[in-house]
Amino acid sequence: MIRIGIIVGSTRPHRKAETVAEWVRDLAVKRGDAEFELVDLRDFPLPHLDEALPAAFGQYEHPHTRDWSERISSLDGFVFVTPEYNSSTSGVLKNAIDFLYAEWGDKAAGLVSYGVDGGARAAEHLRQMLGRVKVADVSAQVALSLHTDFEGFTDFKPAAHREEAVTTMLDQVVSWGTALRPLRAAA
């Protein structure tokens, strides 16, 4: 089975990303067609990009980069849970992506975004970033609104139909992640 990391894309105090990611994981583990696990950026305290060489060289001098590389290398695909901050994804998620290059390549990703408008702009920016590091993002997306999926803009209470959107997105991530496996093996 392939391994899919559900990346918690915020490290802010009182973040919603962790609760959303746990909800996605709880739905995902019922499937049985892949292994799903949380990857919390809080567990990988990456400073602002501090490697001397570009990530494309793959020559990491810092232990925190090597730990991050090992974790991402172990996965076949991703679900990125991203907030929308100032019409984009979080800086910490952008930084985490920038730390690596080859480790991301030829893997599939789905997006779960949240914000006032469902995190749509954050998801679009994230798609551009992922394309640059050769991640194949799937078309199905889960866009959660702070107005309708969070009581009082804080307590996560997703609308029932959101589960179907998660299922569709996961179907695509698993199938693409599996289909891309020969490319990863050749690399």
Score class of each variant (00 low, 15 high):
H125V: 02
Q141A: 08
K134C: 07
E163S: 14
G118C: 06
S145V: 00
V142L: 10
V133P: 01
R162V: 10
T167N: 12
A143Y: 12
E163V: 14
V133G: 03
A160S: 14
S139V: 12
H147I: 10
A143E: 13
G118K: 02
S145T: 00
P158T: 12
Q141R: 12
A122Q: 07
L146C: 06
A123T: 10
G119Y: 04
V135I: 07
G118V: 02
D155Q: 13
L130R: 02
T154R: 15
F150E: 09
V135Y: 01
L146M: 13
T154A: 13
V133M: 01
A160L: 08
A122L: 04
A120W: 09
A136F: 05
S145G: 05
F150L: 10
L130A: 03
G118F: 04
E164D: 13
G118R: 06
E151L: 11
V133C: 04
F150K: 10
R121S: 04
L144I: 14
R162N: 09
G152N: 15
R132E: 13
K134D: 07
G118P: 08
R121L: 06
D155W: 14
M129C: 06
R132F: 12
R162W: 01
S139W: 13
R127Q: 09
Q141Y: 02
D155L: 12
A122G: 14
D155V: 12
F153I: 00
A160K: 09
G118D: 06
A165V: 02
F153E: 15
A140W: 00
V166C: 04
D117E: 14
A160T: 07
R127V: 04
A143I: 00
T167I: 01
A160D: 15
L130I: 09
D149A: 03
K134N: 12
M129K: 02
Q128W: 11
S139N: 13
D137C: 11
H125T: 03
P158K: 11
D155C: 00
S145H: 14
S139P: 05
A165L: 11
L126G: 01
A140T: 10
L130M: 08
V135R: 04
E164P: 02
D117Y: 15
G131V: 09
F153S: 14
T148A: 11
P158Y: 05
V142N: 03
G152T: 11
L146Y: 07
K157E: 10
H147E: 14
L130P: 02
V142D: 05
A159L: 15
A140M: 07
S139Y: 13
L146H: 09
V166L: 03
L144G: 02
V133D: 06
L144S: 05
A160N: 10
R121G: 02
F150N: 09
E164L: 05
R127E: 09
K134H: 12
V133I: 08
T148H: 10
L130S: 01
A160C: 08
E151M: 09
D137S: 12
G119Q: 09
G152F: 13
A140K: 07
A159G: 03
G118Q: 08
E124W: 07
F153H: 15
L126V: 00
L126P: 01
E124Q: 09
D137A: 08
A140Q: 11
R162G: 01
A165T: 09
P158L: 03
H161C: 01
L146A: 08
D149K: 06
A123H: 04
